[in-house]
């Protein structure tokens, strides 16, 4: 029988994979995708616990997380296009304009 622990451990695994991707990749778009992965694993935790506790508030939280993720995607990808226009690359090694 599938309990709430199965869902929690699945989302912990997915969150760790997302962290691994954020720490190891250099392409900014892939890092962005790994952040989406982490957001999704947290959404799974919210829905599993909301089902377990028979309460609707967790799913409302997931709704707002999705709204924020959509806004983040729009602004983040616009930032990447603006950066690419300056540097012709989106490697995180090239994000050094504020260094001196």
């Amino acid at each position: 029988m599938i309990s709430v622990y199965h869902y929690l451990i699945l989302s912990a695994i997915i969150f760790s994979i997302g962290t691994f991707g954020v720490l190891t990749r250099k392409n900014a778009i892939v890092i962005f995708m790994c952040i989406e992965l982490m957001l999704n694993s947290v959404n799974l935790t919210f829905i599993a616990l909301s089902r377990h506790l028979q309460n609707m508030d967790g799913q409302i939280f997931v709704f707002f997380v999705m709204a924020v993720a959509a806004a983040e995607a729009a602004v983040g990808l616009a930032l990447m296009i603006a950066f690419y226009r300056n540097r012709e690359s989106i490697d995180t090694d090239d994000f050094n304009m504020l260094k001196w």
Binding site: A67, A71, A74, L77, A78, A82
Partner: peptide, 12 residues
């Protein structure tokens, strides 16, 4: 928030 994101994406 979504409205601000739209305007921000266009400006950026």
């Amino acid at each position: 928030l979504l409205l601000v994101a739209i305007v921000g994406a266009i400006i950026l």
